[in-house]
Structure formats: C-alpha cells, structure tokens
Amino acid sequence: MRNFEFFEPTTVEEASSLLAQYNGKARLLAGGTDLIIGMKARTEMPEYVISLENIPGLDGITYDEGSGLRVGAMTKMRALETDAIIRDRYTALAEGAAEVGSIQIRHLATLGGNIGHASPAADAAAALLVLDAQVQIGSADGQRTVPIDALFTGPGTTVLEPGEIITAFEFPPRPANSGSQYLKQKIREVMDLAFVGVASAVTLNDGAVENTRIGLAAVAPTPIRATEAEGIINRYHPVTKEILEQAAEAASAQSRPISDLRCSAEYRRQIVGVLTRRTVQTAINRAQS
C-alpha cells in the first residue's frame, strides 16, 4: 500500500472541507473493506485518507413509530442484521446486510460504505430500493436528501458532489401488514458476490397487495427497480401464480445483465424471474403473518 496522510476529523463539516480541499486525491474511510482492498491492489491510490470513525452521530440505529427508521452511515452490517426492529419491519435490509462477506467482514463493513462504493452488486442496495430509503447527504455547506433511486449513476459512481458525505439513511415507517425479503443467488453459502440479488416489499390493504417494490442487484450498471413488475403485482387481485409469473417475466425483461466469468447474461435474466417470484410471494406471506 502507498503511504498517505491520515485525518480523523470529528465533525461532518471538517471531513467535508478536507474532502473538497483534496478533491480527487482524498478518500473517505469507513470500514475499509472496499477501500483498503483497493489500496492494496493499487486500483485506489489516495494521498489523503479521511476516517469517519471519530465523528459522533454517524453510527447507530434509531426507530420511531411515527417517523420511521434512521440508520447512520457508519452503522455496521452486523448491527443491521441483528437488530430486532429491522429484522421484524425492514426484513429485506437485515437479510441484505447478513449476505455481506463473513461475520468478521460485517463487523467492519458499513451501510454507508456499501452504498458509497456503488457496486451494482451491493447486497444492501436492493433492500434500500424497496424500503424507500432517503439518503441524507452532508457537506460543509449543509444537508440535502436524495431518494435512493436517484443516487446511483453507474458502476462505482453516485450523484455525490465533491465534499459530500452520506450521513444517514431514513426509511418511512412500515405498518405491521407489510413484508419484505432479499434473496441472493450465489455458489458458496457465505462469502460470495451476488450473481443476482432481488428484494421485494409489499403492503396489504384489505387483502389487496399495494406499494409493491422490487429491487434488482447485479443485473444492470446500477441497482434498479423492476417497475413494470411492480405495476403488475399492484394491478391484480388476488396475486395468483399466473400474475407472479407475469411479474417475473417483466422483471427479467427489465434487467440488463452482462455475461462474465461467473455466469451468462441469459442465466442471470432467468434467475431474476425466479427470485422475483419467490421474494414477492414471501413478502406477501410475511405481510399476512
């Protein structure tokens, strides 16, 4: 690893000023599980590394029935995976977090880093899409909020401007009659990147399925919503096997996967359909129970 200057600011404003001042030569350090790998491989050679560790208020989970869930950017995957409220009400997020690496990795890896790294295969991204996350972004100039579906611009890129830092993710309250699931297609049970990841979330209203969200990971340049499939589930009542099949086909059609060493685009497209069907069905079952 090349040497670098190391900063440990204690406020978002200070971190933002450093990031802006050394624009292009500085990187934020959260858990380091993407950044340090990159620095060892020399695909990342920052001259300045700015640790977010010592900024109070960036780590933590708070929940309020009225305003919903707030997850600080520095919250570890292991904390998300084991949090009772997240497991119960924001289940897809707990399941997405639990898919990241190993326990050792999840004690380091943060939600802000997973999203800030902006990999199309990020395991938490599909859950954030279906749970309507609002991304809180801070800088020396103030705060702004970007909905998660407007955050990613391409593999590894986001709408973040120089000097901007993700501070938290906010999620609207989820009623008891809602449910969600994240499923990941992989070869090894643990420590494998997603071939395909799919999250679904629904809310029931008098038995009818509403507010369906379907999020796809690793099958397009960014994590995306399968909006056509969502519309099909919302439109028909009851959601029969045939409707699920139609939605699965629509999600497959909306995905834009590539072929690589791990598997072919055709395979990925087929798995999008399978996982869409399964996650929508499970989300409905969970909403009912």
Binding site: F6, E8, G32, T33, I36, I103, Q104, H107, L108
Partner: peptide
Amino acid sequence: IIDGKAITSCLMLAVS
C-alpha cells in the same frame, strides 16, 4: 477480537 468482535486484521489500519 476487538472490543469483543471478531474482525479481519488485514483490513484494518493500525491507526484505526
């Protein structure tokens, strides 16, 4: 083990 939690020490900077 750091503060009770297992981590991979090859991915943590000593300064952290």
